[in-house]
């Protein structure tokens, strides 16, 4: 399959173009904070509960709060039905997302507590971990959890030898490299970085710059979503 034709990608985007993104803060009633993100064909809900007492007590940390994330895909979110419950991929994503979010939360303010972040993928279309992190970060802010910064995430990849931003489904499946990245937008610190495939040093440098610039755009959208909820415009 030809993934790039006449300088355009399979879905008509240019190399450095994001898919359409919609972010909404505070969409669930019971959760302390929540967010809904549509990113291309991805549809993701994130909810935050806490800080609340960590249970069972032996998991409590007397010096800081635990940040516990659960990434889960609905059985109907992918074309072949996914068996319910955590698989190895979900466990890994939950772990690295927890680690990324832990860095931005002032966990030391809540000893013995847990901050639970639940992310549900309702519809998957490549790039779900970045979509989930983006949603989780807005949900945390919506829950009023004190944070150093946002977390903004985006994937970059290589398709037909070209470095392109925000891989779509076909590009993800058939591409030559995939590099999801999450940063703290105010400082540019890297919170999540994974890569598989094949990149030369120059390609890596190009990809990471492209990804970090896109994260800044995501950051603006995240702020807008919160402003919209809390100022009403």
């Amino acid at each position: 399959m030809e993934l790039i034709k006449d300088g355009k990608r399979i879905d008509g985007r240019s190399f450095d173009e994001l898919r359409p993104i919609k972010i909404e803060a505070g969409v669930l009633k019971r959760a302390d904070g929540s967010a809904y993100v549509e990113w291309g064909g991805n549809k993701v809900l994130a909810a935050v509960y806490g800080p609340r007492e960590a249970q069972p007590r032996h998991i409590q940390n007397p010096t800081k709060a635990i940040v516990s994330c659960r990434y889960n895909m609905a059985a109907f979110s992918v074309s072949d039905r996914k068996r319910q419950g955590p698989d190895r991929r979900s466990v890994e994503i939950s772990k690295i997302v927890s680690e990324a979010l832990d860095r931005v939360i002032f966990t030391e303010q809540f000893p013995r507590a847990t901050i639970d972040v639940y992310m549900e993928v309702l519809q998957a279309d490549a790039g779900t971990r970045c979509t989930c992190l983006t949603a989780a970060s807005v949900a945390l802010a919506d829950a009023g959890i004190p944070m150093r910064d946002f977390v903004s995430a985006c994937a970059v990849g290589k398709v037909d030898g070209q470095i392109v931003l925000d891989l779509g489904k076909e590009e993800d499946n058939l591409g030559e490299a995939d590099l999801p990245i999450a940063i703290m937008p105010r400082t540019g610190e890297i919170l999540l970085l994974q890569m598989d495939g094949h990149l030369t040093m120059e390609e890596f440098n190009k990809a990471v710059t492209l990804g970090m610039n896109a994260c800044m755009k995501i950051y603006e959208m995240q702020k807008e979503a919160l402003m919209k909820k809390y100022t009403g415009d």
Partner: peptide
């Protein structure tokens, strides 16, 4: 000398320069 995989872990962060020097 090409990069084939990367994985960042733990709760801290890296700057881009640190990542490049690690590579």
């Amino acid at each position: 000398g090409d990069i084939r995989a990367m994985q960042k872990g733990l709760n801290g962060s890296f700057t881009l320069d640190e990542v490049k020097s690690i590579i």
